[in-house]
Structures are given as structure tokens and as C-alpha cells.
Amino acid sequence: MDLFDDMPLQLPDAELRFEPRFLDATEASDWLARLLLETPWEQPCVQLHGRYHPVPRQVAWYGDPGARYRYSGLTHDPLPWTPLLAEIRARVVEAVGQPLNGVLLNHYRDGQDAMGWHSDDEPELGRNPLVASLNLGGTRRFDLRRKGSGRIEHSLELGHGALLVMSGPTQHYWQHQVARTRTPCAPRLNLTFRWIRR
């Protein structure tokens, strides 16, 4: 399948690959149900302007031994891969053609759970990181904007079983978010696979 068969997405200074039907609905629903049940979800707090606030979603970090991940002032030590997550990782690695040693699971329980504007540009991800984002459950809008701009340049509807891969210089020039919405939406899991440099 051509990378842009389903939705043209050619942004300058970015490498984006979008497969809206990476998984069929049956397999995606099976993985969603099992991950919701098996995952030891946490809701850590981050410090903003001297006050602590719980992040507006639930999270879990899995990875190879030593694949510690630090973002937003939080350091995550990896949980060991479960058989299911090892199976999912193998499928994603096959699709992207490079190894991945960690995955961040985000559980968006409803439309009020969100992710603010950011780039995945932490030092341990290397200069041009590849981030493979697998979506299970409810559809949410994924926005992109140029760094330094307040205007949304492009939006994608990330639905059940969709895979979005960001690589190359994308994180140098672009930010992304999953904004709050008042539109009713089903619970959503987002699995972002990446390679953590030791």
C-alpha cells in the first residue's frame, strides 16, 4: 500500500506514514480488551508553576531492561514485556523496519483525557527519532503545528487499528497534540513505540 493512498499527508520537514487500516477490527478489539485488563495503569503528577497536577490520562511504560524514559520531568523504569506486548511490538517492528525497545501506553478514558502540544525530542531518542503510534478504541483527532506557530497545520482522525509513524526531522520542526473534546468518544489506547538509546 502506498503511504498516502488513504490520506495525503505531505508536510515540509517531516516524514509521516499513515496506515488507517493497519489492523483489522477484530484483532484490534481483541488487543484493546486484553490491554485494558492486563495493564497496571498509573496517573503520575507533573509539576507546573510550582503545583502538582495529575496528567490527564493513564499511562504505563514497557521496555527492554535499561530502557528508561524521561519526559515532562518524570522518569519511567520499564515494566517487562508481556507476551501480548511482545507480539504487538514484533508486528510494528516488521512494519517500520527497525528495532524498537520501548512502548508508552496512554489510556484516554473519555474526551477529557488529552495530550498537550509537544515534540518527542528527548535526548535518549536520538537525533531523528522514529515514533510508531498504534491506536486502539475510540477515534481521536491528532493535530500538527509548526514549532513556534499557534496555528494547526494539519489534523488526522486516528481510528481503531490505525498506525501513524513519525520519523526523520519531524520532531525538530513539528509539535503534535490530542486535544480535549466535548464530543462523546469511546475509551482509546495509544501505544507509542520508540528506540531508547542507552
Score class of each variant (00 low, 15 high):
W41L: 04
R194I: 03
D64E: 14
L134R: 08
N106Q: 07
T75C: 13
R194E: 00
R197W: 04
Q171W: 08
L3H: 10
L23S: 09
E38P: 10
E38C: 05
Q47S: 14
R188W: 04
L164M: 09
D77V: 14
A25H: 13
A60E: 02
D2V: 08
G111C: 05
Q58T: 06
A162T: 03
G168D: 01
R151E: 05
P12S: 09
E157C: 07
D110L: 01
R109G: 03
P12E: 13
W61P: 08
Q98Y: 08
Q58L: 14
V55Y: 05
G111K: 13
N106F: 00
L163E: 01
D110V: 00
A162Y: 01
W81E: 07
R70N: 02
F4T: 13
Q175Y: 04
L100K: 01
T183N: 12
P184T: 11
A90L: 07
F142V: 01
Q177D: 00
A95G: 07
R198M: 02
C45L: 10
W81S: 11
W195Q: 15
E94Q: 15
P56G: 01
Q177H: 01
R91M: 02
T170R: 05
F18R: 13
V46H: 13
R141N: 04
G137W: 10
A186G: 03
P54M: 08
E42R: 15
D13E: 15
L130G: 09
R91D: 00
T170Q: 08
V96P: 08
Y52E: 15
E87S: 15
L189F: 06
K147M: 00
F193T: 12
L3D: 14
L23W: 15
H154N: 02
L3V: 14
P40Q: 13
H154W: 03
P56S: 03
S149G: 02
H176E: 04
C45A: 11
S72N: 02
L158N: 11
I88T: 02
L100T: 08
Y108R: 06
E153H: 12
W41Y: 02
T192Q: 05
E42N: 08
W41I: 07
H176D: 11
Q177A: 15
Y69I: 12
R145H: 03
L35R: 07
P129W: 13
V131G: 09
E122T: 10
D2T: 09
P83A: 06
V131D: 06
R109W: 01
S119I: 05
T183R: 15
E15N: 03
L79I: 06
H107Q: 06
R140G: 02
L105K: 14
R57E: 01
N128A: 10
R109M: 06
E27D: 05
S72L: 03
R194C: 05
P83W: 10
